[in-house]
Computed example of a mutant assay.
Amino acid sequence: MGTKHEDGTVATRQEQKLKPPPMYQVFLLNDDFTPMEFVVAVIQEYFNKDRENATHIMLKVHREGKGMCGVFSKDIASTKVELVLTHARKAGHPLQCVMEEA
């Protein structure tokens, strides 16, 4: 027997078991070589943060070793990691970007 929705339809057992897909947090990791200003620019460009929020995240990376830039579906998180790593390498910086299941 299913659960009745407000619109009068009945949910099946399978529909009730469906969970939303896992979300992934994207982090930047601290290093001793990537300039702070470059990190702020990356956060602004790839994570759509304003300068104040980007600076706050950069300082968290600097002080705590890593800082979260956002939470995304797996495909989007993976793409953001690749874009950041590619941009950093092209600029000659060892900045690391990783994703972890939320």
Rank of each mutant, 00 (worst) to 15 (best):
R89E: 14
E64Y: 08
A41T: 14
Q44Y: 10
E52Q: 09
D75M: 11
M68T: 02
G67C: 03
M68I: 01
D75N: 12
T86L: 10
K74E: 13
P35S: 08
V39K: 04
H62G: 02
D75C: 03
T86E: 09
L85V: 15
L83V: 06
E45S: 13
V71I: 12
H56L: 15
M68R: 03
R89V: 09
M36D: 09
I76M: 09
V39G: 07
L85R: 12
K80S: 00
K66A: 02
T86C: 05
P35C: 05
V84R: 03
E52G: 09
L85N: 04
R89T: 11
A54T: 05
H87C: 13
R63F: 12
M58Y: 03
V42H: 09
I43H: 04
N48Y: 14
V42D: 07
V71L: 13
D75V: 08
M36P: 02
M58N: 02
G70H: 03
A88E: 01
E45A: 15
N48L: 14
Y46C: 10
M58H: 02
G67M: 01
R63I: 14
E82V: 08
I76R: 07
M68V: 06
K49I: 09
E64Q: 10
H56Y: 15
E82W: 09
C69L: 01
N48V: 14
A54K: 02
K60W: 06
F47D: 06
F38P: 01
M58G: 04
L59R: 09
K60Y: 08
A41Q: 15
R63Q: 13
L85D: 07
F38N: 04
D50Q: 10
E82R: 11
K74P: 06
E45H: 12
H62M: 05
F47N: 07
T79P: 01
G65F: 02
E45P: 05
R89S: 11
P35I: 05
H87W: 08
K66N: 02
D50V: 14
V81P: 01
M68W: 01
H62N: 04
L85F: 08
N53F: 10
A54G: 12
R63Y: 05
I43S: 06
M36E: 12
A77T: 04
I43E: 10
L59Q: 07
V39T: 09
L59E: 03
I76S: 10
E37M: 09
A41R: 12
K74C: 11
R51T: 14
E37P: 01
Q44M: 14
E52I: 12
L59Y: 07
C69A: 00
S73G: 10
V40T: 12
K60S: 13
F72A: 01
P35E: 08
H56M: 15
G67Y: 00
R51P: 05
F38A: 03
V81Y: 00
H87F: 06
M68S: 04
I43V: 10
V81G: 00
F72D: 02
A41C: 15
N48K: 15
F72I: 02
V61K: 01
K60N: 12
S73K: 13
N48I: 15
F47P: 03
N48M: 14
V40D: 03
G70E: 02
H87D: 15
S78K: 06
T86P: 00
P35T: 11
F38L: 04
